[in-house]
Design a protein around this nucleic acid. Structure first.
Lengths: 246, 246
DNA sequence: CAGATTTGTATATTGCTATAGACAACTATA
DNA sequence: TATAGTTGTCTATAGCAATATACAAATCTG
């Protein structure tokens, strides 16, 4: 196993690097069967730092709900593996996590009718300044926030979309109210960056965490663009699974 | 434009957060036509920090080759947009960046014959402990390192693969020497994490930078797995473009 | 219960991070 | 050439990050 050490004088505090590494290792499925972590002394030696530095990292993860420390006993893993989020022609949030999570839901944080920016207009193939509906949503699985999305719809065609979404809690169902029986994912651009303050709040991340950003375009049965969205996933809780059709 | 502010007491130094934000904005194509950045005072005000803190961030980006500071004149953008790296059934590195870069090449950092770990064995559908070839490669475009890959091949079938790769500099060409005329990308799992020390060195990143990690499996015309690889991309220089076949 | 192991708390010290103010060096321009 | 605007250097100070040492508190095991 490659033993990546922590980087000093990098602008990223050692305790944060260690916290990120531990969180990552847990997501990858490491840790013994009881969910017990190595002792603070063992971790300190492994990372080549003082015990208190490890403690600071552990405290951050306890705060986050990833670990649980018990005096005299040890430190234990509170949460487990990453969800695999499939991306393909039929990307659907609701079906995506089936079998991996017991309970999943989406809810709307807000919506607004706005004028299309050049970026949005180009994606939706409408005029710059044309009215669009912006939908801000948050998705959860097993009571853990998974993704935070901002979607744009052509307001001419989908005016009132947000009400159907609120009622049903499903994009697919809301589309049906507008006569869209089927839709496909045409393209997805994936990048990554540090979580912003909005992500920190809604995805319950701690500063310095990484988010995967997926810019996607959905099209209807006739190939017309219907939804342009930016979805941010917690990189510690989700991996994107790109599978090709046969 | 949302004005995400910097986070204090986060374990990530302000100068690093600012450097990351600026790098990110540049990658997204911001900046005026001359490539001139706002003044240090303007940036300090925008981020709500002292001018010296901005200077530290700029110095890091100058070191990285992203910015260029000229006394008395201003600070200028040295490098431009992100490469879009396509991921699809026919993912090929060599073709991927066509049209975006003038010059691109791959070279081998090293290779080794090893025993398959459970993870590798499962992917390649061989027995645990069976001999595999591990290939460490680095890809560049326009003299900038783009990706760092670790690939595994079934050594029974592809013994000597590394020599063909060295000769031709192309995976596709090396396959041909083993009678593999065509191959497909079956699946890709994408995640993100902070760059490790190996990434820092080969991808010429500064500590705290983010890498996109793509775990991919290639299959031959008969559907047999032939290559299992982990590729790490600099998140500042590359975005992964997932496009669906029609 | 006694001892070993492990997490929790306290204090002190050193170095890095961020701020503040002043001024030098360089460039462009009126 | 004088002035304004911009980056570069210097010094000083306060707070956070990391280390070091010691000991308390809780748990487990013989």
């Amino acid at each position: 196993m490659e033993q990546r050490r922590v980087e000093r004088r990098s602008g990223v505090a050692l305790w944060r690097q260690i916290a990120d590494r531990i969180r990552q290792d847990i997501s990858a499925g490491l840790g013994d069967e009881n969910g017990r972590m190595p002792t603070e002394m063992a971790l300190a030696e492994r990372f080549g730092v003082n015990r208190h530095t490890v403690r600071t990292a552990i405290q951050a993860l306890v705060q986050e709900g990833v670990l649980r420390a018990e005096q005299g006993r040890g430190t234990f893993i509170q949460r487990q593996r990453r969800f695999a989020y499939p991306i393909g022609p039929r990307t659907r949030l609701s079906e995506g996590l089936a079998g991996q999570a017991h309970e999943r839901r989406s809810h709307m944080l807000g919506h607004a009718y706005e004028q299309a920016t050049p970026e949005v207009a180009k994606a939706l193939e409408i005029d710059v300044g044309a009215p669009v509906l912006r939908l801000e949503t948050l998705s959860e699985a097993d009571a853990r926030p998974i993704s935070r999305a901002r979607s744009y719809f052509d307001a001419e065609r989908f005016r009132g979309f947000e009400r159907h979404f609120i009622e049903t809690g499903s994009i697919t169902a809301a589309y049906r109210a507008f006569g869209v029986e089927d839709y496909l994912r045409r393209s997805t651009a994936i990048s990554a960056r540090h979580a912003g303050s909005d992500d920190l709040e809604h995805l319950q991340l701690s500063p310095g965490a990484i988010v995967l950003v997926a810019l996607g375009l959905n099209i209807d049965g006739d190939g017309r663009p219907i939804q342009y969205s930016e979805t941010r996933f917690s990189a510690d809780r989700v991996e994107l699974q790109v599978s090709m059709p046969d």
